[in-house]
Simulated assay, not measured.
Amino acid sequence: MAVLARSILVTGSNRGIGLELVKQLVEMSDPPEHIFATCRDPDGPRGRALHDLADKHPSIHVVQLDTCKPSSIKAAVAKVTEQLKGSGLNLLINNAGIVKPFTALESETPEGMLEVYKTNVVGTMMVSQAFLPLLRKASHESSQKGMSCSKAAIVNLSSECGSITNLLAWEIAHILNYRCSKTNISEQDSKAALNMLTKCQSLGYAEDQILCVPLHPGWLQTEMGNSAMPATMTVEEGVQKILDTLSQLSEKDSGTFVDLEGKVLPW
């Protein structure tokens, strides 16, 4: 695969899909010059694998980022800006999210709904807003025509569980808080609101030629992906498909809801 983008930031990079994205990005034949791997607690026990990877590859920059804390987001933007040395950021992959215990429709709580919504939707919005100047810079300084992930893009990892038309896996788990905010069944996040956020981003940033898509990564064999029932696809296989799809996205895809193979899904 040709270089996907010269600079990429992945939130929630200490485990699951996020960690595998960083692994496969750095192993490309033409890897990105900068891979910003962020997570809430990079110096904690869950950040060890990420640091081990960064120790072997100087292109990986481990950055602390709590998507719910404006001060943390601001500090992360400053670190990324410093590393880019005047260049823009090509690709923002919003992967971070939280999981709450599965609840049925009648037992969901206001607290659970609000906590998940704050992290998975509002957090994604705040991170995208904060890095927007760097994305705009990359787009405006690019000689490429149209839209692509190699130019400037926001990819929000979502899920078909948030599709109002398909309502994937309802019989397995109602997970109302996840479905209503930002569903990612492989990480058991949630998502209908995230889809709307991404659609609005695609319209709002169209003039800047920033590609914006929500992407359903499939039900993958991650720590949380297997919590409801065993997943059928390994995270390695799924991430390879995701990266192949990202490399092929263009302006015709901006504002659509796609799966890991690029198939358009119903809202």
Rank of each mutant, 00 (worst) to 15 (best):
L4V: 00
I8Q: 01
G18H: 03
E20I: 05
L21V: 02
V22I: 13
V26Q: 12
V26G: 04
M28A: 07
H34D: 09
I35Q: 09
F36D: 00
A37D: 00
C39I: 01
R40D: 00
D41C: 00
P42F: 00
D43L: 04
G44P: 01
R46M: 03
R46Q: 08
R46N: 11
R46E: 04
L50C: 00
L50P: 03
H51P: 08
D52E: 15
A54K: 02
A54F: 05
P58W: 03
I60M: 04
V62G: 07
K69R: 09
K69H: 06
P70T: 09
S71H: 15
S72C: 01
S72F: 00
A75L: 10
A75S: 12
A75G: 05
A76L: 03
V77L: 10
A78H: 11
K79G: 00
K79E: 15
V80D: 06
K85Q: 12
N90D: 09
L91G: 00
L91H: 03
L92V: 02
N95K: 08
N95H: 06
T103K: 12
A104D: 15
E106F: 03
S107R: 06
E108W: 05
T109F: 01
P110K: 02
P110I: 02
G112P: 09
M113W: 09
M113R: 07
E115C: 02
E115A: 08
E115I: 04
E115H: 06
E115S: 14
Y117C: 13
Y117N: 12
K118C: 04
V127H: 10
Q129G: 13
L132D: 11
P133S: 06
P133W: 09
A138N: 11
E141N: 14
E141P: 02
M147P: 10
S150I: 02
K151H: 09
A152E: 12
S158F: 01
S158G: 10
E160W: 01
G162R: 05
G162D: 05
S163W: 12
T165S: 11
T165K: 06
N166V: 14
N166M: 13
L168T: 11
A169R: 14
E171I: 03
E171G: 06
A173K: 01
H174E: 13
N177E: 15
Y178P: 12
Y178A: 10
R179N: 02
R179V: 04
S181D: 06
I185A: 08
S186D: 04
S186Y: 01
D189Q: 14
D189S: 12
A193K: 06
A193G: 11
M196W: 07
K199L: 15
Y205G: 09
A206I: 11
Q209D: 13
Q209N: 15
I210M: 11
I210S: 14
L211C: 12
G218C: 06
W219V: 13
L220G: 06
M224F: 11
G225C: 09
S227G: 07
A228M: 13
A228C: 13
A231D: 08
M233D: 14
T234S: 14
V235G: 06
E236A: 15
E236R: 15
G238A: 03
V239P: 09
Q248I: 00
S250K: 14
D253A: 08
S254L: 04
G255N: 03
D259R: 02
L260N: 14
G262L: 01
